[in-house]
Every structure is written in structure tokens, then in C-alpha cells.
Simulated scan of single mutants.
Amino acid sequence: MPIVIGIFFLLPLFFGALAEYLCCRLPRRRFWRFLPPVIAVVFLIVAVWIRIQNWESKDVSPLTQLIIFPGVPAVALLLGVYLGWRFWKYLWSPKIIDDLR
């Protein structure tokens, strides 16, 4: 069970956070910041499309199979993208120092 959680949740979470942080930190142009969320949404659409096209089993509920894959990895990837952006924002945004106290 921990291997499944690691593969389907923690790896996409890590890669999403890393990609978003690097795309926010390294390039000078702002449009690169939108690349990881766009790739995550495209990944979700392609995975759902492939999953629906290859549907042959009538015994298993389609909803449960769409939630397990690509649902969980896509949610983890989008959450990782958000966390990577928040981490970048926390580290590199200007800090306000109140000297009056």
C-alpha cells in the first residue's frame, strides 16, 4: 500500500512542486510560470481521454477507475504545482518589516 501511495500521489506531488518552483524561479519571463499548470491540465485531459477510449470492462464501475487513475495523480500534480508556487512566493516575495514597534 505505501508503494501505491508513493507512486500515485507522492511522486506527482513532488514533480509538480519542483516543476512549478523551477519555472517560477529560473526564467525571467512570466509566461513560463503558467507552463506547469497547463501541462498538468493537459495530462489530466489526455489520461481521461485514453482511459475512456480503451474502455472494455463492463464489470467495473467507470467512476471508480477514473478516480483511481488519472484522478488521484492529477489532483496530486495540481496540488504540487500550487505548493511549488506558494513555496516560491514565500521565499522570493518582498518581506514587510515594521520598524515602528
Rank of each mutant, 00 (worst) to 15 (best):
W49F: 11
G6R: 05
F31E: 11
V4P: 00
S57M: 09
I39E: 01
Y82E: 09
F87C: 10
R30N: 08
L78W: 02
R29N: 09
I3G: 10
S93H: 12
K58L: 13
P27A: 09
L35P: 01
V81A: 06
D59G: 13
F69Q: 02
L100Q: 14
P27S: 06
F15K: 04
S57W: 10
W55K: 08
M1Q: 11
V48G: 02
L44T: 03
V48N: 08
Y21Q: 00
K95L: 10
D98W: 10
I68H: 08
A76D: 03
F15D: 00
D98H: 13
A40K: 02
V42H: 02
R33I: 04
L91Q: 14
V81E: 05
P27F: 03
A47I: 02
W55Y: 09
W32I: 02
L26T: 10
R51A: 15
F9G: 06
L13N: 02
V41P: 03
Y82P: 03
G80Q: 04
D99K: 11
K58E: 10
W32K: 05
L10K: 00
V38G: 07
V75R: 09
V48E: 09
R86W: 14
P94C: 10
Q65K: 13
I7S: 09
L35R: 02
R25M: 02
P36E: 03
P70C: 02
V72F: 13
